[in-house]
Amino acid sequence: MKSIGLALALLASAILIACGPPPPPFNATEVSNLAYGKGLGIPDTDGKIRRIDDFKGKVTLVFFGFTRCPDICPTTLMRLRQVRNAVGEDADKVQVLLVSVDPERDTADRLGAYVKSFDDSFIGLRPEPAQLEKVVKAFHAIAVKVPTSGDDYTIDHSATIYVYDRKNQLRLIAQPTLEINLFAADLKRLTQEG
């Protein structure tokens, strides 16, 4: 009996050595095999059509927002700049894309100036108004117009950040409140993958 136990223990340790310990979990939520946003082409603020697959070799962050959003959108943009900077020397491998949920009011000029004021590397995407619903659905996200006063409206929208790896696979879904250092650590790991 003792020798069987020993053999089992040896076998177990052999398996452990062969496979190595599992990698530590990411701080954001890990996802796999989700084709969110795949194949979708959205005009940037210069009118050029952009696809997730155009950013091969980069870790690409996508999130929804609009310029008439007084709080969470500018806060998220500020934080993403800080996160990107905290990635350090690989920061230029991190690309941030803001998709407007308010293309009717976010003109290309306005959206472009807005996004670039947070970080010159950030890119604003402005779906055609008729395309917006399809874009939002492609990310399984939400964007709903809510009237405020008069003709004015605001937009309830998903505030999560979709993170694609360097092979353009959706890997992480992050909440905008994720701590900057933890978020940066996740991105650094992804930039170091092949």
């Binding site: 004015d152 605001t154 309830d156």
Partner: peptide
């Protein structure tokens, strides 16, 4: 105009209300 708003995060969705 000045509006008085509440804002909250609900299941990853930002909701703003007058």
């Amino acid at each position: 105009e000045v509006q008085i708003h509440s804002m909250n995060m609900d299941g990853g969705v930002m909701r703003m209300r007058q």
